[in-house]
Simulated scan of single mutants.
Amino acid sequence: MNRPKISQMEAYMIETLRTNGITNEEIIHDVKEKDVSKWKQINEKFDFEQLIVLAEKDFSAFEQVINEGYAVKFVTVGGLERLLRLKFQKEAGEDYQKLETGAKGLKLDEASFRDLEQMLSLNWKVEEDEQGISVLLKEQKDFV
C-alpha cells in the first residue's frame, strides 16, 4: 500500500500529539473544525496549523495519514532519532546504538518494523539481522 507522504515536521507534530494522549479521532475532528489552538500547550514551538493546511489539500489522504500511516518525504539522521523516540518510544543508547549514518541493534515487533520501513523516505535502508534492525542512510549513489 502506498502511504501518503508528509514532511518530517508534520510527522513530529502527529506523533507528539499521540504521545500526549490525543487520539486519531480527536486529531481528525479538531483539524476538520480548524481548532488546533489547544494543542499549543503540548508544544508551543510547533505550528499545528500546518496540519490544517495538510488536510485542506486532500482530506481523505489526511485521514489515511492519521488512521493508516504515512511515509516521510525526507528524513535526516536526527529526524530518524526523533521519530524512533516519538513513534516507537525507543531511545538511543538504551534501545539501539546510534550511528553517524543511522541506528543499529534496534528491536521492534513485526508490525512496528513494517511501519518503520513504510514510513522512511527512499534515502534509508532498513535491514534485520540477529543483532536487531539496522536503519542506515543509503549512499548518495544508491538512490540518485
Rank of each mutant, 00 (worst) to 15 (best):
M1L: 11
K5Y: 08
I6E: 04
I6M: 04
S7M: 06
S7R: 02
Q8H: 03
M9P: 00
M9G: 00
E10D: 15
A11I: 08
A11N: 04
A11M: 08
Y12N: 05
Y12S: 02
E15A: 09
E15K: 12
L17T: 04
L17A: 07
R18H: 07
T19W: 01
T19F: 02
T19P: 00
N20R: 12
N20I: 08
G21T: 05
G21K: 15
G21R: 14
T23W: 06
N24G: 07
E26C: 08
E26Y: 09
E26A: 15
E26R: 15
I27G: 03
H29G: 04
D30W: 08
K32H: 11
K32C: 00
E33N: 15
E33P: 00
K34P: 00
D35M: 12
V36T: 14
V36W: 05
S37V: 12
K38Q: 12
K38D: 10
K40Y: 13
N43D: 15
N43Q: 11
E44P: 08
K45F: 10
F48N: 03
F48G: 02
F48D: 01
E49R: 15
Q50D: 12
Q50T: 11
L51Y: 10
L51Q: 07
L51I: 11
I52R: 05
A55Q: 04
A55C: 09
D58S: 13
A61G: 09
A61F: 01
F62R: 05
F62Q: 04
F62K: 07
E63L: 09
Q64V: 11
Q64E: 14
Q64L: 09
V65L: 07
I66D: 03
I66P: 02
N67M: 13
N67Y: 13
E68N: 15
G69L: 07
Y70F: 15
A71M: 12
A71K: 13
A71P: 00
V72A: 10
K73A: 14
V75W: 01
G78V: 04
G79D: 05
G79E: 07
L80F: 04
E81P: 00
R82H: 10
L83I: 15
K87E: 09
Q89G: 06
K90C: 05
E91S: 13
E94W: 00
E94F: 05
D95R: 08
Q97Y: 06
Q97M: 11
T101K: 09
K104R: 13
K107F: 02
D109N: 15
F113R: 12
F113E: 14
F113N: 08
F113P: 02
D115S: 15
D115V: 07
D115T: 14
L116F: 06
L116D: 04
Q118I: 00
Q118E: 14
M119I: 05
M119N: 04
M119T: 12
L120R: 03
S121K: 03
V126W: 01
V126H: 02
E127R: 05
E127G: 03
E128W: 00
D129G: 10
D129C: 10
E130T: 09
E130W: 06
V135D: 06
L136K: 14
L137A: 08
L137F: 01
K138F: 03
K138W: 02
E139S: 08
Q140V: 10
Q140G: 05
K141F: 14
D142I: 01
D142K: 03
V144Q: 09
